[in-house]
Design a protein around this nucleic acid. Sequence first.
DNA 1: GTGGTCTAGACCACG
DNA 2: GTGGTCTAGACCACC
Lengths: 130, 130, 130, 130
Amino acid sequence: MQALVIDPAAHEPVYGQIARQLREAIASGTLAPGRALPAVRTVAGDLGVNLNTVARAYRQLQDEGFLEITERAGARVAAPSEGSSRERLDPLRRDLRTALARLRQAGVPVPDLKKMLEAELAALGGRRRG
Amino acid sequence: MQALVIDPAAHEPVYGQIARQLREAIASGTLAPGRALPAVRTVAGDLGVNLNTVARAYRQLQDEGFLEITERAGARVAAPSEGSSRERLDPLRRDLRTALARLRQAGVPVPDLKKMLEAELAALGGRRRG
Amino acid sequence: MQALVIDPAAHEPVYGQIARQLREAIASGTLAPGRALPAVRTVAGDLGVNLNTVARAYRQLQDEGFLEITERAGARVAAPSEGSSRERLDPLRRDLRTALARLRQAGVPVPDLKKMLEAELAALGGRRRG
Amino acid sequence: MQALVIDPAAHEPVYGQIARQLREAIASGTLAPGRALPAVRTVAGDLGVNLNTVARAYRQLQDEGFLEITERAGARVAAPSEGSSRERLDPLRRDLRTALARLRQAGVPVPDLKKMLEAELAALGGRRRG
DNA sequence: GTGGTCTAGACCACG
DNA sequence: GTGGTCTAGACCACC
């Protein structure tokens, strides 16, 4: 996969940058379900950040369902869930609504927004099923 | 419009709750462009929150392009922009991608995701143009 | 209440020592429900430990139901719950069983164990209800 | 005795799962004092875990006074002690107090707590004396 | 060799 | 003024 790129001066926290890039790689299928991720200390050494910073990114992705972490076997890419409760989905849908509203207000016409969404969905759809 | 509902004990900050509800009302057209919003002190009094909290929500919506604030005339709903630079759009699109990936991983199948997006877009499309 | 006593060299972590002493004060009624606890920075200053260490103790007691924490109002002693699911109780009961078995094996005869338990229950029963 | 059940993915460490189940079997009398336990390598083979993991569980139970381990004769269930110093008992009693306080706060009324304790004591009392 | 804990200090969010 | 975040370093638990 493409190497992680970190900007320590960015407003986005380092652990968030790591989590986001891994999330997109998983969602796009670049990192297929079942694949093992490098150890936190390895990533931390490569990026020049603390071990805990990487561990936090991994744990967040675990909470979001993107990774399965076991203490001894390390972290592996998880298969997507096959159904979820409304309680879990509601805040995610709220974030989606906010993102769409901001894009529209920032000047993206609705037809362009539709094309943008189709492109994003195509990237998701190309993902391999576990 | 529907009255604002605030939960002071929620994890989401109070100013965020105010901003989110106003943003959705604007995006859906419930609050049409040009319409004047109640004064900060009025809203603060009605909700029983600090004046600065409401002011912060207004300021955020101004930064996002949803409101136009002038010292004398107060806050009015802004018309959506008619074009925007990639620099402004990129972080918003990144948030959109994150929201979609989380929903997919949480168990929403891609076809359901499509329907969800159409519903959200329809709500946006019903909005009156400034 | 009695001042907290910390031994930085003890095997028990500092945050655990703080949590345990506060827990016992709450369980015994020394700290009554509704009572406000000192701010984390105050306690941290008094004990000479980091703010996060105290905050962690407070958060653990919140998770156990002993405290109610709100960002702006600080921490207050909570009233005991009025019923709980078996899922939550099972691990607690397992800890109780382990504690009893260890005491018995360490040489406390069952009759003495009974007296010990009655004494502990009396301390709990003397607690004021919220 | 009932076979040991291990969940490698559980939060509780494997050696702790083994120790806990053996401890309960000894405390309840299912494993009587003097009885020989299977060899470490036997248990490890049956459970499919590392030999050191089982050895650690045995060693912990030895430290707690539940087992007597000799190099030649292996591990045997120990008789309960007939008296112990306050220094050894105090931390055990502290754990007992913590367990009771948590149960009470989690919603178990004091009368129910009493019944729970009587049941646990009865299980202990049924144990055969060495 | 894996992930995790514990404490810390600087800084931030919130009202 | 409140609690919380973010990153860090040393050390630990586990197998």
